[in-house]
Each structure stands twice: as C-alpha cells, then as structure tokens.
Design a protein around this nucleic acid. Structure first.
Lengths: 316, 316
DNA sequence: ATTTTTTCTGATAGCGGTAACATTGCTATT
DNA sequence: AATAGCAATGTTACCGCTATCAGAAAAAAT
C-alpha cells in the first residue's frame, strides 16, 4: 500500500507537505504542489480513509433513519438505499439502518440520513447532536433532498392536457405533508393556467382505496377523463378498477402515476408515470451529508431534482 | 468516548491486558479477566473499529459483486442488500457495489460477497486474492449461502399434493445451475415417492415466457393441475394466462411460485409461494465473510437456510 | 536451594494520517 | 546592516488499538 510517506520520499518533502497538498493546497507553493501531485499520480496514491477517520475522530458510519413506519423493503426505499450506499462507498462510509426510534442515539457514528419525517418530528430534530440531512421536502430550514414535486405535478398535468383529455382529476394521498401539497400545487396551477377547474380526491396510499374511489364515483366520470395520481400504488388501483368497470384505458380514460419505481412496470397495464430519480437522490443525500460532516455541520440547503415523465400504456 | 486506556485505569492493568481480554482471553488469568470485563461493563466500553482496522491494516469495506447481468434494483436483490447492510453494520463495515467486472480488483477492501455466479465463473474465483463468500449454491467447495432449494421444491410439491391436485407440473428456468437442479430434484423426488410422473418445462425467467407456455399447451392440462414454478415471475405469468384462458384459479388450477419477495404480493392474485428468507441470508452472508476475514481466509463451508411456504390465493 | 522453563503482564513501537508548534529563509522596515 | 514579520516547510506528538518483545513471577526440574 502506498502511504503518505512513500509520496513524501518520492517528492523529497515531508509527510506534512503531502498532507497539506491534499487538505490545504493553498498553504503550499505552486512548485512543490505540482511536484507532490506528480508523485501521487505516479505512485497511484490514495489516502487511507481509515487512518483519516481515526485521526479526525470519526467513525465512517452514518445512520439511515426511517421515522415513519415505512416498509423499508419496498422497492422505493430499496432504491434510495442503493443510491445512498453508492454515494457513501466512495468515501468508505458504512450505513447503519435504524428503524427503531430507541436506537437513534446509540453507538458511534458521524451523522444521519432521515426519511419519513413528518411535521411533528421537527422538534425532535433540534435535539440531534450530529449533522443530518432529510429525505423529503420541508419548509423549516432543515437541509434536504427531494424531487421537485410541484414540477412533477405540472409535468403530469401538462401531459394529460396535451393528450387532449378534457377532465383532469387529481387523486392524492390524505396526508398533510409538503410533498403532497407541492404535487397538488403543480396540478392546480397548471389547470388554472388552462382555465380548467381542479378536482381533488384524497385517499390512503393503497391500491384498494383507489379502487373504492373509482368504484363509488365512476358514474361521475365522463369519457375523456385523465386521473393524475400521487403515487403509482394509487394509479395501479385506478387502472384496475377502471378495467373492472369495462372502461377503455387509455382511449377513454387516462391514468398517470407518480414514483416510477418498479410498481409502474408490474401493473398489468404499464403506467405512464412521473419518475423520480431515486437512485440519484440517494447519492446526493449521501454526498450532502458527507460534505456537511466535513464542514462540521454547516448548513447545506435544499436540493430539488427534477423528475421526468415516462410515457407508457396508461395514457393515449 | 471510552477507550482501552480508560478501562485499563479502572481495572488497574495495562492497555494490553484489556486488549487481550478482548482478542485473546485465554492468555489472561481468570481473575484479571473478570476484573477487566467488569470495568468494560461499567464504562460501557465498545472498541473503536476504526482504530482496530488501522492497526490490522484493514479497510472495513467489502465489495458486493453482481456478476450476472442482474437488475440490482429488483426487490429480490434489494432485500439481500439490506440484509447484508445490516450484517455488516454491526462491525461498521461499508459496502461497495460492483456491477462492472473491471472494478472488481480496484481500490481497497477486505473481501467480496458475490452473487449471480455461473459455473463458468469458477475459474475466475480461484484468482481472487481476498476472501469471498458466494450467494447461491455451488458444488465446487466454495463457501456459500443459499436457501435450501431442494427442500423448497419438496415443500411446494407436497403442498400441491395435500391440496389434492392430481397433476403436478414443474415450470423451471432454463439455466443449468445448481439452484434450478435442486428445486427440480425436490419436485421429482416428492412426486416419485407418491408414484406420480414428473413433467418439467423449462423457460426463460419472464412472465411472458410463462404465458406462452400455458397458452401453447393449455389443451394438454386437465383440470386439477397444479403448476410448481421456479420463480414468482414465472408464477405471475402462469396465473395471468390461466385467467386469460378463463380457467378457474385456484379451484381447477393451482399455481405455486418461488421467492416470496414483493412480486408475489402485487400479482393480481396473491401467490402461494416458497418464501426465501432473503434478508436473513444477507445477514448471514455478511457474518460469514466478516468471520472469514478475521480468520485470514479460512473456509467457512456452506449455509443452507430453509425456506417456508406462504399459502395465499393461487392454490385452493 | 538453584536453575530452567513456563506463564502471565507490561513497555514500546507503529499502523497512516493530521493539528499544533518549531524552524527556516525570505522580505520589509528602520 | 540589523531586526522584525511573515510565509513555507518540517518536527513532534497523538488518535485508539495490537504485535512484539522484555521482564517478572510462578511452576517445574535438577
């Protein structure tokens, strides 16, 4: 293994100079810096993260906390986790999965990634002693990563309009959380710009709840209706019930989901959906946290990533 | 943070004695050992894995290698990964995800977890310089973890018999790999014990391939037939096509899948399936590798975990 | 009782880095 | 020319742990 000392010898400088080239290059003369960089290149030097961690009193561990009672084995979270793992592994960081609130403060670690946070958890965050980044938008100034939910709502609604569906109905999730409001806002704004009247149902995030809604209200839905759903789970239920009602999907009724993680592909009709770049979001989450740790907890702000529309069989 | 030195002082011994109590307890007198253990307890001492790693010249990183061109974002592998992460995190180990064969030897790490290995890869394994454990059975003496595929085949077949299906047909995957043979063996053995004649189709592991098979051969399948499938993916296709043929599932036709990871639950008929304890297998995989690393690569043997049968809507 | 062997414990050094302080050589000031 | 001031580099010590060797004490052998 190539160490600092090897590089130092090759470049005829002390270990410290090499260390400085890596961590505080501005403190080193241009001349020496280049010399050292060459030596590092030639020897293919890579810093030993373990040694760095020891001297910096870090653990190279971050906790992945799922606050809400989430099924973390769902493809959605699995994808997120995968992205996080990718982001962390570049710096040889390990993940610790925390589902039990009791374990949150246990053990040694450098920071948190938190998902499933509800507004009611905000007080709790203020007591955390280590840096953290939230997954999911909030408007309380906590650093977070999310997809641009409002943009996603717009994207879906605009597309429904472009396919000439006359009635566009939003089927949302009955939680009072920012992500939901943002998606609805995207929908409402787009409709209003087009002089159409928004119509919103809010239900639990289950396919059977969606089936219920369609079943109970089917008579109210004229042909040429498109359903903008707040999740693929809901969209799956909507499609299923529409088919049970012998309605023609996508000719007479369109359905657009949200998420784009696995479920959209196993539905018996492949869903048109707003696809979140979950994997990338996970990577970003990891990067943000690692940067925050390195900067001793200084704020990182928000990161909104644009989702994309995937056009498939549930719209015409 | 409580260190070795703190414990040493409390117990009135040197650091080394404490270290020995942890790593080589047999070298320490009973008397001192107990004293030290008490001190560790009272101070709630936990060794610093980073320091350990540094002095042992380890990286606390293992690579998760997916050799086959696997979609690692599939629930099946995600679950595995989750289990692995859990197992590794106890020792603060990090995962590095490797999908590209080129990266296999890159960088610093202590060992491999390898999945998707085909018989043709065995030669390649002999050249690996660091310890590894395979996920998936093999009969070449490499350490591995898998579910007991033969037992799973038996489980499914026995259950089909107990539900009084008269014809029991196996729909397998057309790969020449141990896991497939083992499942088939479980099926064949059970049928022969019951004086029935095995009948096996082998197809690609896709739902539409399964639909094809059912479509093309439906006339050959009398009522009271149960299909034992080598995957939930296949089972899903079988169910779908049977329904398209207006066959009565589960009254006249039964279907049993294999895997029990997510797909079984989103099928329009919830599948009876042989559920692999994937999460546990991941954990075990991690534990085995960490032990192997600690023991400088000594063989760990095989670990077969029994799957369980989940009874749902696709059998009567 | 003395020497040899064995068993146990402690002191030291070092894993690969970095912070803090010490030193060197240079420029600026008088 | 002498001295202060500053920037660039080096020296030292230490992060927490363990292998190695040295030394002390106990057990065994003479």
């Amino acid at each position: 293994m190539v160490t600092l000392l090897d590089v130092a010898k090759k470049a005829n400088v002390s270990k410290m100079t090499v260390s400085r080239v890596i961590n505080h290059p501005e403190q080193v003369t241009e001349e020496l810096r280049i010399l050292v960089e060459q030596a590092m290149d030639e020897l293919d030097y890579h810093p030993n993260y373990v040694a760095q961690a020891l001297v910096n009193k870090r653990t190279n561990v971050v906790k992945f906390v799922t606050l809400e009672d989430i099924d973390t084995t769902e493809p959605y979270y699995m994808n997120l986790l995968f992205g996080i793992a990718r982001g962390l592994s570049k710096k040889q960081y390990a993940i610790q999965l925390v589902t039990d609130r009791g374990q949150i403060e246990d053990g040694n670690f450098d920071g948190y990634l938190i998902t499933g946070a509800r507004s009611s958890d905000y007080a709790f965050f203020d007591n955390l002693k280590k840096p953290f980044i939230l997954f999911g938008e909030n408007h309380h100034g906590y650093d977070y990563v999310d997809n641009n939910n409002q943009y996603g709502g717009e994207l879906a609604t605009k597309y429904a309009l472009s396919r000439l569906y006359q009635n566009i109905i939003f089927i949302g999730i009955d939680v009072r959380e920012p992500f939901e409001y943002s998606r609805e806002t995207g929908y409402v704004n787009t409709l209003q710009k087009n002089k159409k009247v928004p119509q919103i149902y809010r239900i639990a995030n289950h396919s059977h709840a969606a089936q219920e809604v369609i079943k109970n209200n089917f008579h109210k839905f004229p042909k040429d209706t498109c359903f903008i759903c707040a999740s693929d789970r809901i969209a799956t239920g909507v499609v299923r019930q529409l088919q049970d009602e012998k309605a023609k999907v996508p000719a007479d009724f369109g359905v657009i989901g949200y998420d784009g993680v696995f479920l959209d592909q196993v539905s018996n009709l492949k869903l048109t959906t707003v696809k979140q770049p979950i994997f990338k979001m996970g990577e970003l989450l990891a990067n943000m946290l690692l940067r925050k740790i390195n900067q001793k907890g200084s704020p990182q702000g928000e990161a909104l990533i644009k989702p994309s529309l995937v056009k498939r069989e549930s719209t015409r």
